[in-house]
Simulated scan of single mutants.
Amino acid sequence: MRVPSRSPGHQPGPPAASTAPARRRPPAGPSRRSPSPGPDLTAYRAAVAELLVEVGALATAPSTAARQVLIDARLREPAIAAVLDATPQGFVGARETLLLEMARYQPNERSSAADLTALVRIYLLSRIDVMWWRDAPTYLTDAQVNASPELVDLEWLRRRDLLRFRYQEQPATLLGRGVRALRRRLRPDATPRTAGLLFRRARREMVAFLNDVAREFAASTPAGTPPLWVTSLVRSAEHQYRLRRLGYAAMVPSGHCLGWAVDVELAWYERFGVRETLGGLLLARQQAGEVNVVDEGQAWHLCLAPGARRRLRRAYEAEMGI
């Protein structure tokens, strides 16, 4: 919106004489406009939902050509194209990546993409993450994650009772993996079935966000309900590609590799009757513009919105007494 001029504009009749000394006016600068609100994410999610219905109807192998024509046409719709064009890859790169992911897709028990429709949903909705954080640096290697001053050690915080959520680390040795397997056989439902965190590090804002969600979840569920369980936090691009080689639906680029995404367990809470409660809390935060939510089946992927960063950084500092 153009800022209204403060001058009265042209007035009829001869100009009035002035006894004040003449002053040189500064040169007119560029007009100020309100910042662009960005793509309409509500329209984007609705358009993606409609696309998924059509992809599901063309999920069989003989429909490959028709499916590609559908994707080509639907991605060009303004609501979808606006988001894809705002990602680091741009519209063309995002489109080509999706088509390549679909061509390479092979279902397996490790992948959160149970079918082709799930793959398209995970890819398209996760593009909101990389659009939001397109200027954030990527953690390229494991060493960068471990050395980053922007990340804090979760174990240090846990030992001081400063975390309201739970997680488990990946076993580092063959003995550790054997002990983990034995525990799962003896108590198969005691914890979520997840490999655990390779990196027990997170951004301070993400710690504050997870603590906040964990408190809300605890207040909304019966006594004895297990706390919020985190299955994945920051990852390096190096690790992301390792996951892809193992068959996981690890998208590239990813909010995990920027440090702004997290996965939380959902399916395990079904046995406690509170899965819908947790899902509702997370969707309410998406509705409020705080996060982007991607349903990945067993776990839900969450990415923090840039607009929530300052508030959560202040919340972290208040919690930690900084």
Rank of each mutant, 00 (worst) to 15 (best):
T191M: 13
D189I: 00
R180T: 08
A218R: 14
R180L: 08
R215H: 07
L197H: 11
R204G: 11
R183G: 11
A181H: 05
E205K: 06
P192G: 07
R200N: 14
G196D: 07
G196L: 08
L210Y: 05
R183Q: 12
F199V: 06
F217Q: 05
R187L: 13
A219E: 15
D189W: 04
L210Q: 14
R200A: 15
F217W: 07
D212F: 07
A202V: 06
D189L: 09
L198W: 10
R215T: 09
R204D: 06
A190H: 06
L210W: 08
F209H: 12
L182N: 02
R203F: 01
A208V: 10
R203Y: 03
T194A: 06
R180Y: 04
A219V: 01
R183S: 01
E205M: 02
F217S: 10
R201Y: 08
M206P: 01
G178V: 05
D212A: 15
A190R: 14
D212C: 05
R187H: 11
R204P: 11
R200I: 00
T194F: 01
R204Q: 15
R215M: 11
A214W: 04
A219T: 02
V213C: 04
G178P: 00
F199P: 11
V207S: 07
A181W: 09
R201H: 06
T191G: 00
R201E: 03
R177F: 06
L198C: 03
F209D: 03
R187A: 13
L186M: 12
A219N: 07
A214F: 02
R193E: 07
A208Y: 10
D212P: 06
V213K: 04
F199S: 07
R215Q: 14
A219C: 02
M206D: 10
G178L: 15
A214H: 05
P192H: 10
N211R: 08
E205I: 01
V213P: 09
F209Q: 12
A190N: 07
P192I: 05
V207E: 10
G196K: 05
V207L: 08
A214P: 00
R177W: 14
R201F: 03
L186E: 00
R185W: 12
V207H: 12
A195K: 01
R180A: 14
A181K: 04
A190K: 06
R200F: 00
F199C: 07
L182M: 14
P192C: 08
R204K: 15
V213E: 07
R177L: 08
L186H: 02
F217D: 12
A218H: 11
A181S: 15
D189E: 15
L197F: 06
A208K: 13
A195S: 10
M206V: 15
N211P: 11
R201I: 03
G196M: 03
A208E: 13
A214D: 06
D189V: 04
R185C: 12
A181Y: 00
D189A: 14
V207G: 13
E205D: 13
F217N: 05
V213L: 15
T194W: 04
L210F: 01
R193F: 01
L186Q: 06
P192N: 10
D212Q: 14
A218K: 10
A214M: 03
R200T: 12
L186F: 04
R193A: 12
